[in-house]
């Protein structure tokens, strides 16, 4: 049965299908597996970060720090691999630990000091970006044979598409994210927090561990995103990925998650990412359009989805009034 809470997800899906159909009718070659594979590869780091952002927004919060954390991770890896003989896998683990702890610390501040996530993560954004500058202001290239091995890993489709490792990591992240959000107690607590923090508290839920966990996930996935980004660009640069947090928020909202929290699906964010990637690909195919048209179309889509969400909220409230009324007269 179709419920109104599913509607944003369905609209996202329909938008994706429609957008793809439009693209394919203009440029039939966009249907090739090569384009699909590139769509996944090019958006891998953004997709991974957007999974974390989905959890944050579902809980009614926001995380502005992820763009900086991605850049920090990239610079950290580049500097560590340049200056020490540490194996990249160990460096990865270290980076994930640092970013997860960073996210958890922000979550703790948000919960225990009852600070708005906006302010705390804004501070986190400056902190992480500043830390990246401290490590290096230059773009540091990464030249390690293990990176070449990882970058060389791909599965080649018979028709020519190369599905690379980092695209696979993104898809895997989404699958795990979907399971965690919808099939674990932690996931339910995230939704509960987004539905009403005070109520969730009165229902006896562990708010502290949930809030800290949410921002730890967001931080950790930003770290993973940073690793993927460094594999994608083979460099670490402190000026990279400025504003990626806003792209991630856009993907989450286009994916049908309510910005005020409580309603949405991790799977929706996946299609939000694909829609945004598709627009970019179309502009590349077209060749005559300025790449800024990507921003304009995404802006328009965001507006459309915000209006849709508001309309749905009104519709459910109206329905609630009528159901209450009919029960009273029965």
């Amino acid at each position: 049965m179709i419920r109104s809470t599913h509607l944003p997800l369905l609209v996202t899906l329909a938008t994706f299908v429609l957008a793809y159909a439009l693209c394919a009718s203009a440029y039939p070659s966009m249907l090739s597996t090569r384009v699909v594979a590139n769509l996944l590869t090019d958006n891998a780091f953004l997709g991974i970060a957007a999974v974390g952002m989905t959890f944050v927004i579902l809980s009614g919060g926001i995380d502005l720090s992820i763009g900086s954390v991605i850049a920090f991770t990239g610079v950290f890896l580049a500097v560590v691999l340049r200056d020490t003989s540490m194996h990249p896998l160990l460096a990865f683990a270290l980076a994930l630990m640092i970013t997860t702890a960073f996210g958890a610390a922000m979550g703790a501040l948000i919960h225990y000091l009852e600070m708005p996530p906006f302010i705390v993560t804004l501070a986190g954004m400056f902190l992480a970006r500043g830390a990246a500058y401290v490590l290096s202001t230059e773009s540091v290239p990464i030249t390690h044979e293990f990176y070449d091995v990882l970058q060389g890993l791909y599965w080649k489709d018979p028709s020519g598409g190369r599905f690379r490792l980092i695209g696979g990591i993104m898809v895997l992240t989404f699958l795990v994210g979907i399971l965690v959000a919808h099939r674990t107690r932690f996931g339910q607590n995230v939704y509960a927090l987004g539905g009403g923090g005070q109520t969730a508290k009165l229902m006896g839920l562990p708010l502290a561990s949930t809030t800290i966990g949410i921002y730890a996930i967001s931080g950790g996935l930003a770290g993973l995103s940073g690793i993927v980004f460094s594999l994608y660009t083979s460099a670490g640069y402190s000026l990279a990925t400025v504003g990626v947090e806003l792209d991630a928020i856009a993907a989450v909202v286009i994916g049908g998650t309510l910005l005020t929290g409580g309603y949405g699906y991790v799977a929706g964010t996946f299609f939000g990412i694909l829609i945004m990637g598709l627009i970019q690909t179309y502009i590349v195919f077209d060749g005559t359009l300025s790449s800024w048209w990507t921003k304009i179309v995404i802006g328009g889509l965001l507006f459309a989805f915000i209006v849709l969400q508001k309309g749905l909220t009104w519709a459910t409230q109206a329905r609630r009034r009528t159901t209450t009324g009919s029960a009273a007269h029965s």
């Binding site: 809470t5 099939r183 107690r185 939704y191 509960a192 109520t199 229902m203």
Partner: peptide
């Protein structure tokens, strides 16, 4: 009513003590 409007009736009823199987709800 101190229940969560964004969850289903069953989710509200069992929030925090959901029946689990293989680590999943």
């Amino acid at each position: 009513v101190n229940l969560l409007p964004n969850l289903t009736v069953a989710e509200n009823l069992y929030l925090g003590r959901q029946p689990m199987r293989w680590g999943l709800m």
